[in-house]
Design a binder for these strands. Structure first.
Lengths: 161, 161
DNA sequence: AACAACATGTAATAAGTTACATGATTGG
DNA sequence: CCAATCATGTAACTTATTACATGTTGTT
């Protein structure tokens, strides 16, 4: 089970909305996704080079109105294919579906709805478990001094799900 | 600005509830926090050694009813001090306060409430911003093909906050 | 002249994952 | 005897952060 490089798919996903420079990718990710993910230049620029090398993105130097020249990257067909193949694949992390949702326009019609329904079904089981925890946390001390705080977090999780 | 090692504080925090082995830490983190964080043996065991070396935890070998001997780690006074100093420090990541909340029993009375209030105030500003985004995402296409999906995520974030 | 924002990049370091190695005990 | 669970650990590798280097353009 080789691990998924999310940085790669965040960048591929950003480029799916249109050609962009590394600087812009950073700016939009910070603006739109700041409370979910962050991505630093130390990841972005090397990854853009790797994507270009691998034929997943094509680079053009473009003059910038302000500041130095920009390197604008555009998704190639291979890049779009790679993005879509990840979008279709099963999620391995909790937040992965949320990330995929950001690039919903690249998903086949119905796929996102299908995934969201499966997620919701999975969550229903967890909600039942959380409700059970809440009852358990209430009874005495078997969970130690932090039980009331776990309770608060479980309550938060419950309302979120 | 040296970076915060969250693994260290998760382990220190777990040990604050009582002596525990690496295996147990993994088990509880998976059980209780699985939808927020994960922590692998490849992090836990080396970190426990480092904590012991640094005098933040003390190790005792204890026979296990089942399976091989366990190495049970107990928080030292220095370890507790280190945990509390992190608990007091300002948060640098979005999810950091949630993590701190799990170890609320080690926080000075009022500190958690204070931090939660500050967080709530900060969130109020963001809620206003999100509401503005929702209006913007509604008007035409300046945000590209994924605008409806950003809208969904913003809606989710809004109800969460 | 100074500063903010624009723009790209790298090197050193730290952190995290995966796969592997080892072995005991209990229940079916 | 086999599988599951208990239990600890390491090596190879990948990923991420921070600090630094460099330089432009527009605003105060």
């Amino acid at each position: 089970m080789t691990r998924v490089n999310y940085t790669k798919y965040i960048i591929l996903g950003m480029l799916s909305s249109g050609p962009m420079s590394g600087y812009e990718i950073r700016k939009y990710v910070k603006e739109l996704f700041s409370y979910m993910w962050d991505i630093s230049y130390g990841q972005i620029y090397p990854m853009l080079s790797r994507l270009e090398e691998g034929g997943l993105a094509a680079m053009k130097v473009a003059p910038s109105g302000k500041g130095p020249n920009r390197k604008v990257y555009e998704l190639t067909e291979a890049g779009r294919k790679e993005l879509r193949s990840w979008l279709k694949s099963p999620e391995k992390k909790e937040y992965e579906l949320l990330l995929k949702m950001c690039f919903g326009s690249e998903m086949e019609p119905g796929l996102l709805a299908e995934k969201l329904e499966a997620y919701s079904r999975k969550r229903e089981g967890e909600v039942a478990l959380m409700e059970e925890w809440l009852r358990e946390f209430g009874d005495g001390q078997p969970y130690g001094p932090n039980a009331p705080y776990y309770r608060m977090i479980t309550l938060l999780g419950l309302s979120y799900f």
